[in-house]
Design a protein around this nucleic acid. Structure first.
Length: 737
DNA sequence: AATACGTCCGTTTTT
DNA sequence: CGGACGTATT
């Protein structure tokens, strides 16, 4: 067994640690996952621990997936330990034992949107002013309570406002239960409640899972902390791995003290520090350290590496976000031409909204890419609609899903009817579904409405019967067709309907894939996967290389040779909402550190002078983090940079005496987009950089020329639009300006 | 009851 | 700017 081969001394120490608590402080790129994987293998092979006694908990599905993969690689195909996220782990426990808390084991898992709908009902029931208590705020407050481990009865009524929140929380919780549904927070909180109120249940799990590992421990919030404590039991065979510098989930209730004070909470803990970085060049590692080092609330430490110094970190300022995106594409192409691999390329941004421009540019430049997170597939309107049918079949008490589909597609069951049923349900404290049956068969509704509701009930019973005969994918196809949903999409204008039809086809395909895969194949399991695994696994993604687009938050734990961090501007990153709060600012700083330390070889930090946000132009100063990186590590750190310095022989923009990086007053150089352009060789008549005039859009500059003859297209940057436009030369009627 | 406009509002970050 | 939602219109 080569279990200890290729491990450095502290890594070995962590791997070989036996019983009792173990804290591994693992810096970025220090081989943290490696340690966990090796440790698991070590326990199994050297200590004779049966795999099923080991539970490894992560935060994201991605991390869990990767860890599972590496464990399987190491252990072969035999029995493997349970590796899963906090939420999946809890869902699994609850499916087994939630009866003790008065729910059915087939409970639904609600996403944010579902929860909001429920909250709206509560808000109405309590006659709350939607202005003073926006549903969104209610939702986040309740989420925060749950993260803190508080039930409705734990909320202190120390102000009328708090008292109201507590009332909403209680109402909401009651409704969830009536729907036989839980939200994300419940998965954790109910599990803790289950364990605390039913020790015999906890005992069962303690007996089974004797070795607990927790990855990214710095991101645990109070409920998760409590859960870990409970699962560790008296044995305390608990190994947690984390890095306080990478704590980036404070907004989700994560308490950095959980890791800083681990030694207090678990006396006798063995502490191992992994301080050698195997991932990045010296320059990158140093630059990142200089950024994070400014934080007060951190354990002082500095990683080191044997890796070469490497290239400078590149800093560039572009005129606008389209240019920023184009620079990214150009640099990717250069990287590829040097023999680089596209799957080693990533673009990170602070907010999801930034992805769009990058996507457009990548499509234009034919750079294959895939996005992590973003608009989740299962959150799409049409997908949610169809899933709602399935959810109701699985759990008829699911009010939110039922109300969603009762008139989707339109069946002539209007708001009045729905309201009447809902009222009846509330009076009796029964699920909407039961009230609906009353509507269909009892005296509740006028004859016309009654008939329509009865027809719907009938329709659903038909699906129910089908669900017992057909595999999931076929059942779903039947629902899509028989409900009239498909016909309705067909009747929509093409640009609206086509995408949605394709999404539904993709949904059915995902089910087919799921059915041929290993493990359980029921509807309930599929729905759970949908709820907890946000991403649709695109089968092709593994095969054909593509660049990765994602938020900085989802980047944690990953690594790439070439990394772009875009939008490095004050108010965006660091985000505007962190500007006044020192603690949040420290978190932004850590986020920057996380992003930078993902890069193995080459790192770009980009920002723009003018960015369009909410359709408005905004000018922000460069992110303060840039200034924290020593100039000798940075290429371009001492100047406002033009987009293509090497090609810019026109000096008009560089002749400005450039203000200090931190001056809030930004230099507005409206026309600088024009001077940068350089004529490329040859075409007669038009060339890149040529100034033109369009009848409608006014003056602009040709950015790119594509195609030949009648099909020749140009991309022109118009001043009036502040952005590019693609035109067919044949029709555009461009004049030379 | 269903559609067609109009308005308001928003963006952190994720399970 | 664009999506979500509410109101006006038929």
């Amino acid at each position: 067994m080569k279990l200890l081969h290729n491990l450095n001394p502290p890594q070995k120490e962590a791997v070989q640690h036996g019983e009792g608590p173990l804290l591994v402080l693992a810096g970025a790129g220090s081989g943290k996952t490696r340690v966990i994987v090796h440790r698991i293998a070590y326990l199994i092979h050297e200590r004779g621990v049966p795999p099923w006694q080991i539970l490894a908990v992560t935060f994201t599905n991605k991390a869990a997936g990767e860890m599972r993969e590496r464990i399987r690689h190491m252990l072969g195909d035999g029995e493997t330990p349970l590796v899963s996220t906090f939420h999946s782990t809890c869902a699994r426990f609850l499916r087994n034992d939630i009866k003790s808390l008065g729910y059915d084991p087939n409970f639904a898992i609600y996403d944010d949107k579902d929860c909001e709908r429920l909250l709206k009902d509560c808000s109405a029931e309590l006659n709350l002013d939607e202005k003073r208590y926006p549903v969104k705020l209610l939702g986040s407050s309740i989420d925060e309570f749950k993260n803190q481990g508080m039930t409705p009865f734990d909320v202190p009524a120390d102000s009328p406002y708090q008292a109201t929140l507590a009332r909403v929380y209680r109402c909401y919780q009651e409704r969830l239960k009536r729907c036989n549904a839980v939200d994300f927070g419940d998965l954790l909180l109910l599990t803790v409640q289950l364990f605390e109120e039913h020790p015999e249940v906890l005992e069962k799990y303690l007996k089974r899972y004797r070795w607990i590992m927790v990855d990214e421990y710095q991101d645990t919030n109070p409920v998760q902390y409590r859960l870990v404590q409970l699962l560790a039991g008296e044995r305390q065979n608990l190994c947690v791995v984390g890095d306080d510098d990478q704590s980036i989930y404070g907004w989700r209730g994560a308490d950095i003290r959980n890791i800083l004070e681990f030694e207090k909470d678990f006396p006798g803990v063995k502490v191992v520090k992994l301080e050698q970085n195997y991932r990045s060049t010296k320059n990158i590692l140093d630059g990142a350290w200089h950024v994070v080092q400014k934080n007060r609330g951190r354990k002082p430490k500095r990683l080191w590496t044997d890796n070469p110094e490497g290239e400078s970190i590149v800093y560039r300022t572009l005129p606008n976000e389209w240019e920023e995106a184009r620079l990214v594409c150009r640099e990717i192409e250069r990287f590829l031409s040097e023999g680089g691999d596209l799957s080693e390329v990533a673009v990170f941004y602070r907010t999801n909204a930034q992805s769009r421009v990058i996507e457009d540019a990548m499509v234009a430049a034919s750079v294959p890419y895939h996005m992590v997170g973003g608009v989740r597939f299962y959150a799409r309107l049409e997908v949610k609609d169809i899933l709602a049918y399935l959810k109701v079949l699985d759990n008829p008490a699911d009010d939110v899903s039922l109300k969603r589909i009762i008139n989707t597609p339109p069946r002539g069951i209007g708001n009045t009817t729905v309201q009447r049923i809902a009222e009846f349900a509330n009076e009796k404290g029964i699920p909407f579904h039961d009230a609906m049956l009353e509507g269909a068969y009892g005296p509740l509704l006028p004859a016309a409405a009654k008939g329509k509701v009865a027809a719907f009930v009938n329709e659903m019973e038909g699906y129910k019967a089908l669900s017992e005969k057909l595999p999931l994918s076929e059942l779903t196809a039947a629902v899509i067709n028989d409900s009239g949903y498909y016909a309705r999409l067909k009747s929509l204008p093409r640009d609206e309907g086509q995408d949605r039809i394709e999404n539904l086809q993709e949904l059915v395909t995902a089910m087919q894939v799921y059915e041929t895969g290993p493990g359980e194949k029921g509807l309930a399991d599929f729905l759970e996967q949908v709820a907890l695994v946000s991403d649709l696994e695109h089968e092709g993604d593994g095969k054909k290389a593509s660049a990765t687009l994602m938020t900085l938050h989802s980047a944690k734990g990953l690594e790439f040779q070439l990394v772009f961090m875009i939008g490095m501007e004050e108010k965006l990153f660091p985000h505007a909402r962190a500007l006044e709060n020192p603690e949040q600012m420290e978190e932004e700083r850590r986020l920057c550190y996380v992003g930078m330390t993902r890069a193995k070889k080459r790192l770009f930090l980009l920002n723009v002078r003018r960015r369009h946000i909410f359709g408005q132009e905004q000018m922000n100063a460069p992110a303060r983090f840039i200034a924290d990186i020593p100039k000798e590590l940075l290429d371009g750190g001492d100047l406002w940079q033009r987009s293509e310095p090497s090609r810019d022989f026109s000096s008009s923009s560089s002749s400005h005496n450039l203000a200090s990086l931190f001056e809030d007053e930004m230099e507005p150089e409206v026309a600088d987009n024009e001077v940068r352009m350089v004529p490329e060789d040859g075409e007669d008549g038009i060339w890149v950089g040529m100034k033109v005039r369009h009848a409608q859009f006014g003056p602009g500059t040709i950015r790119k020329i594509e195609g030949e003859g009648d099909n020749q297209k140009v991309i022109v940057w118009f001043n009036s639009l502040g952005g590019p436009k693609k035109l067919l030369v044949r029709f555009a009627g461009l004049e030379r300006a």
